[in-house]
Amino acid sequence: MMIETRGLHRHFRLPGGEVPAVDGIDLEIRHGEFVAIMGPSGSGKSTLLYVLGAMDSPTAGWISVAGQRLDRMTDHQRSRFRNTTLGFVFQSFHLLPRLNLVRNVELPLLYAGSPGAVRRARAGRLLGAVGLPEHAERFPTELSGGQAQRVAIARALVNRPQVLLADEPTGNLDSRTGLEVMAIFQALNRGGMTVLMVTHDEHMARHAGRILRLRDGRLVGDETVDRPVQAALPAGFDLAGLDLEAGGTAAGAGSPGGPDGRADGRGDGWAAPDGPAPVPGKGGLPGEGTPAEDRGSGDRPGDGTRAGDGTRAGDRPPGEHVGTGPRQGGGRTEGGRS
């Protein structure tokens, strides 16, 4: 299980009394799921996301992310955990305006203690992979919203996280660029990334494989999306270029160090689609992106960069794994971690 909570509470002490923003949530999210969290404002969805993202600690309850008990961590441990295991994407991008794009993207690596040259190389590579190869020395103010969010995604992925957390990632974008972000999330998810996204946009939520609904801090709905809407990847986006496999650093950015123990958390290898993105132009309408079509790109034997074990992300129908796919990596993740 990638994320698991039991009786999770987050109460805020306000002058008017205690407000239960998260009021007893039991949750299980498997490795490799793409989950949307929905709910009216004040329902506690963002609070839940930040508690799951180790930014906030629960007032009561049990919480485990990637095999780590967050509720028992010190502030310093949570910082390390955010740095090594999680990636954040925000509604208003939150790029630091005084830093150029390379310096923005390398920020997590800075706190991970990577040497400067390695940071620069990796950040530059990720900027290229999200389709902004010429923008390294530019500043955030020179970007459009869609570009800024892609830079923010690059920043979230630069230290090869296991879970991507997004707080209204399309809230400040027009619908076209919003869909581009959804496509990127779907591509990452197909590659094995666990994605958690808070949104209030039903259409965006339909791109996920599972939708959780919150009201007054309680879970009121847990819906599996049978056929997620498929979005078209933006031009220039290169999933393989993100080089997200933990072991791939040596070959990729030239950084020292091999497998750092995170590889065992991911049962399946990253199916680097070396062809065009899986379903460009086809996923615009609900139901049109069928599992069969999806399979096309990742299924070729021997095309992966590393030894495939037959459970590549591309193998699975986008909706199938949610709650119903026992062969999915979740079981292995637990086995590897605990």
Partner: peptide, 12 residues
């Protein structure tokens, strides 16, 4: 806040 989210510890 952004630096903290990216993994900066209090000490940083």
């Amino acid at each position: 806040g952004v630096r903290r989210a990216m993994g900066a510890a209090r000490r940083d």
